[in-house]
Design a binder for these strands. Structure first.
Lengths: 223, 223
DNA sequence: TAATAAAAAACGAACGTTCATTTTTATTGA
DNA sequence: TCAATAAAAATGAACGTTCGTTTTTTATTA
């Protein structure tokens, strides 16, 4: 029969990758066999090799496809946050990061597969130079906030926001994948409030803070 | 021959587990074969089964042994921190967590193996009820700090400290295993300073903070 | 009918585990 | 003190499966 149209090929590949992803996140890379994939995808074993050269090629294709989705979602999240340093917005940001993690936890399972099997070859770009990307998105806002005097001296807004991103991210990952079971002793709502509070206002009371400022010792830390 | 002395058995098991761990963290669970382990441990394939019932049993024994070491190291770290909320101490704490992560990054690779292959069955206890353990260790100190008025109102010291722990932990893990490559745009020393600053004093200037307090809106967040 | 997709069969290699056999050595009796 | 012994430890070939991949055969349709 003649060559399949590209759209049909794409559909078939999507079906295969859906099946493969389901299995991969459930049991890892090596524990997932090509026979498992062919069975779940309802495609013959041999035919898989008409679409992909190797098993790893399936894994890579899944990651590439999924990365695009995640980056898109992240872009949506960032675009919704216009004033990233406002506590309300930071909390909202954390909330959206939490939804992303919970809705797509399998994506991060794929990342762990990548860390273990491929030294994170395919996922390195997720974290490499993370702060530069934040600066690209919010650099102007950060500069404005600084000029307005919104920021404590010695604190870099892009570091704060990137740190907050990592913290929210990690909080929900631990809850979802690592059996955190309310590891902060709070439900998600309360945790979001508390984390936001810490990032915005810190821990120490103003009295304590000013007593610290009177001392000379903590040059590197006191800002 | 009569039974080997327990000390010899323990030595032999240690040798096997050292080899197995080396391979597991390099290539994952399913990619590591019993033959690989027997070769590196210089023990015959069959003899492995005199020491362990299954391959998974080797994995479990490694985790149990390693968990004890890590918990001991964590205990040492905690015991060195007498005033956990003092910025200097918090920074010191972060530094020690960093050393722990860097010296034992393979331990957390084992955790990712566990997440993928065994739904984190063996590692759940690492995070489950984490904050309760922190309260057990520092509860008195936290209460004292609160009574002294060191803490911003509405901020729970045990949440702060647990959060800081997670943040330090995650920062070094990302750098070590996920290709972070100075993902905060700072070297480790600077990052420690900056993170400590955030936890102690927060982000917002006092002017900004007081203007927030005048508003009625952010009841949940403003503390 | 010619070209291509899909399916089926087959490949050698490797897997975890078992087991008959050999080697080792702590104990024993003298 | 030291062979003899018996029980445990160590061995490596072999088992039945399963692996990723290749090759061959069959089905489909412009």
């Amino acid at each position: 029969m003649p060559k399949l149209s590209q759209s049909v090929i794409d559909e078939n590949k999507l079906g295969i990758e859906d099946a493969a992803r389901t299995l991969l996140i459930k049991q890892g890379f090596h524990a997932t066999s090509m026979r498992d994939i062919s069975k779940l995808a309802e495609v013959s074993l041999g035919n898989l090799y008409n679409y992909y050269d190797t098993k790893e090629a399936i894994f890579e294709s899944i990651i590439n496809r999924y990365s695009n989705i995640i980056n898109e979602k992240l872009g949506e999240i960032f675009s919704e946050i216009d004033e990233p340093l406002e506590p309300e917005n930071m909390r909202k940001f954390g909330e959206m990061v939490g939804e992303l993690v919970n809705q797509h936890s399998d994506f991060w399972l794929l990342m762990y597969i990548d860390v273990l099997e491929f030294q994170n070859r395919h996922f390195r770009k997720m974290f490499d130079g993370l702060i530069d990307r934040m600066r690209k998105i919010y650099g102007d806002k950060f500069a404005e906030a600084k000029n307005r005097g919104d920021l404590r001296t010695g604190v870099d807004a892009s570091v704060v926001f990137t740190t907050a991103y990592m913290q929210f991210f990690n909080y929900f990952l631990v809850e979802k994948l690592f059996g955190g079971n309310q590891h902060l002793g709070l439900n998600d709502e309360q945790a979001l409030n508390h984390l936001t509070k810490i990032f915005a206002y810190g821990t120490l009371s103003e009295e304590k803070l000013s007593s610290f400022k009177r001392e000379t010792a903590n040059k590197a830390i006191v800002g």
